[in-house]
Simulated scan of single mutants.
Amino acid sequence: MELTSYSGLPNERVKAANGIDYAYRDTGPTDDGAGVPLVLLQHFRGNLDNWDPALIDALASGRRVIAFDNAGVGGSTGTTPHTVEGMAHDAVAFIAAMDFDQVDVLGFSLGSFVAQRIALTRPALVRRLVLASSAPQGADGMHGWAPEVIGAIGDPETSPEEYLSVFFARSETSLRAGRQTLQRIYGARSTDRDTATDWATREAQYDAVCTWGIPDHARLQRLGCLRMPVFVANGDSDPMILPHYSHLLAGLIPQARVKIYPDSAHGFLFQHHAEFAADVDAFLDGP
C-alpha cells in the first residue's frame, strides 16, 4: 500500500488525561510488523508544518512515525510550560493518550532537551533515543543563544533569509539545500496547515531553553543513568547549538554514538534528509 506523503496527512487530535487536546499527524505502516513507533519532538517555535516532508516520508517508509504539537503549541490546547521538565510531562501524557507502551523518540533542538528528560524520567518508555542538534542540561555556554541567533529566529516575524542563516551553512551548496527545504515545508501544503505558534509559546520556550543552559556540572552526570542506545547528531556549522555539545553528550551517555554531518548547520537533518533517515533507520533497527 502506498503511503500518503506527510504534506498530505490530515491534522488529527487526541485528548489526554491531563485535559490537553493534542494535534498530531500519523504516518507509516501501522501493522504488527511495523515495530515500535517513532515519536518526533519539534524545535523552538516549530509546529507540525515545520518538519521537512522529505525527512518524514523517508523515516516513515518502514516504520510508524508520529509528529505532534506539545501543550500550548500550534494546534494543541493548553499552555506551554516554562520548563523542559513540564514539556516532558506533557509529552508523556500525549504518548499515553496514543496507547503506546514503548516508543522510539527523535528530539530536534529544544525537542532533544525534552527527549532527554523523558528518557531520564520514564526510562522504560523509551526504547531508543535520537538527539538531533542537542546539548546536555547544565553545560557551559548554553545559557541562552548568541545575539545573532536569537535575533534571527526569536523576533515576532522572521524572514527566509534569517531562517537560512541559522539552519544552513554559508556555502552555496548548503544554502541551495535550504531553499529547497523551505519550498518543501511551505510549498507542499497549502490547505489545512497547522496553527502558528504564538508569542506566549515563544517566551515560555525560551525561558525553558535558558533554564536548561544554566551551568551546573552535577546535572551532566545524570546522563550516565541512560541505558538505552542513543544516536547523537548535528551539523558541523551549527551556530545555535554548537557541535561540540554532541561530543559532550556522547561522552556522558554509556551507549551513545555520534555523527557530525558536513557543510551543514542547525537544519542538517533537512539538508541531509536521505542520509540522516538512513542513519536513523540503521540505528533503530540495529542490535
Rank of each mutant, 00 (worst) to 15 (best):
Q183P: 01
T158S: 13
M228Q: 14
V126T: 10
D101F: 06
H89N: 12
V73Y: 00
R219D: 05
L41E: 00
T197S: 15
D198F: 10
R222K: 15
A278C: 02
D236E: 13
Y261T: 01
A88F: 06
A88K: 03
H82F: 09
T27E: 03
A218H: 13
R170K: 15
Q271H: 14
I214W: 08
A169D: 15
D49F: 02
P123G: 05
L110S: 05
Q271W: 01
D192Y: 07
P136W: 06
P136C: 09
H143P: 02
T211F: 13
G138P: 05
S133G: 15
F167A: 13
A277N: 04
F270C: 12
A58W: 04
E157N: 11
V105F: 01
D194F: 02
G35S: 06
A146I: 00
A60W: 11
T197K: 04
L38Y: 10
R13Q: 09
E157G: 02
L252Y: 01
A96S: 13
F113K: 10
S159D: 08
A88P: 02
A119R: 03
R117S: 11
T79G: 07
A34I: 08
M1D: 11
D57F: 07
A60E: 07
A208D: 02
C210L: 15
A135C: 15
D155L: 14
H247E: 08
V126R: 01
P29G: 01
I56Q: 08
S237C: 15
C210V: 15
E12C: 11
Q271N: 09
A91M: 08
N70W: 00
G138W: 07
E172W: 10
F268E: 01
A152D: 04
T158W: 14
L220Y: 03
L38M: 11
F268L: 03
L249K: 00
A188I: 07
R127H: 14
L59D: 04
R176N: 12
I260H: 02
R176L: 09
H143K: 15
V84G: 00
I153Q: 05
A169M: 10
H143L: 11
S165T: 10
G107R: 00
V36D: 09
P254L: 04
A277D: 03
H43C: 13
V232L: 06
A96H: 14
P123F: 04
R189S: 12
S264F: 06
P215S: 08
G46I: 01
Y245C: 06
H82K: 14
A88V: 09
D140W: 12
G111A: 02
E85R: 13
T79H: 12
P53F: 10
T30H: 13
D32M: 13
G213P: 05
D31T: 12
P160L: 05
D263Q: 09
V103C: 07
F270R: 06
A146Y: 02
